[in-house]
Write a protein that binds this DNA or RNA. Structure first.
Lengths: 192, 192
DNA sequence: GTCTATAGAAAGATAGAC
DNA sequence: GTCTATCTTTCTATAGAC
């Protein structure tokens, strides 16, 4: 880890490091608490910078949110592999994600901020256009839009049960069985 | 509709009617905006009563929340019918629920308030013990806890996509096909 | 580039008049 | 039984000193 990546680079008057520290802390807190559940003071404290700098660098809490949550690490990456094992790959990924939600995570961000009056509408637009739409395109065939929507339903629902509600059955020693069930269910939507 | 059920009974100094009006407005607002997303002033205004009466009658916003969200209208009622068509019944129910979320609804309440520091933990306990646990008991067989958790995943995920994210594919003319897909998927978990 | 100080709004809760 | 008035805290955002 370079010096620029530590907290706010030890108050070194490095604008780049300050921006990065704020973004990193924002990703963590927005994923963990949602847009309305965290204050700019919390983010600033965690980044080791002054709260006023958030508005100085990003304009507003809302603009920070959208900067912090635009990720390229999509689950859609998994569509690049073999079609016949898509269900298995995504189920493995979902069931083995770290429970500790202290990093950027599109699923957690979505679930925890979708109810916000401020950022909810844009998050919904993003989910429908950039996720469901693209998955439907990849799926093809009959009722592709419905099947894509149902696949995302399973993804969101599973993540919510496992990481937010903390259902024990999804985090015990029967992980292999759980993955098998989920994989089969998702693969059924892929196959049409 | 009796006089007692109108707003706050026209300021008629009827404690029973006032309580009922607050509870009704609270159910609507907590389902629509979540615990943190609504203020006691909003609820009081909608109930046609003074905001101070909420604490007078219920002690606190938190206590009002739990009074307002303890419902007996469980989805688990659907376990009373034929086991072989459980998936179909629940899929029909989920896909045809009113989009307008202005009434008590355990699913919306859960999704919208699970992230709250105040009521989230109790909601999670309730979900795991009163919902997943009981469904697992009804399911029986191998990996019943896992299968029950996965069924609730589908329920929560579907409701979130359809009513909160507003995915068009789940609300268009292809409702019959959507129900068929979802029913098959849930039934697979029931059958084990 | 970073800080203090503060404006301005909104929240939950309560005391006490009527 | 219901109301007004207010205490206290917390929030985003900004002006201006350093």
């Amino acid at each position: 880890m370079t010096a620029k990546e530590t907290k706010a680079a030890e108050k070194s008057r490095d604008a780049e490091a300050t921006r990065a520290a704020i973004l990193s802390a924002a990703q963590k807190h927005f994923a963990a608490s949602g847009f309305d559940g965290v204050g700019v003071r919390d983010i600033a404290r965690d980044a080791g910078v002054n709260a006023a700098l958030i508005n100085r660098y990003f304009g507003s809490k809302e603009q920070l949110f959208f900067k912090a949550t635009q990720s390229e690490d999509h689950l859609l990456r998994l569509t690049e592999g073999d079609r016949a094992t898509f269900g298995q790959r995504i189920a493995e990924r979902l069931a083995t994600r770290p429970l500790n939600d202290d990093q950027l995570d599109a699923t957690l961000v979505m679930i925890r901020s979708v109810s916000s009056d401020v950022v909810g509408p844009e998050l919904c637009r993003r989910a429908n256009e950039e996720y469901v739409g693209k998955l439907a395109e990849w799926l093809g065939g009959e009722n592709a839009d419905q099947r894509a929507a149902l696949i995302f339903s399973e993804i969101l629902g599973f993540d919510m049960m496992r990481r937010m509600i903390g259902t024990a059955a999804l985090n015990d020693e029967k992980q292999t069985e759980t993955i098998a069930y989920l994989a089969k269910s998702i693969q059924a939507y892929v196959d049409g």
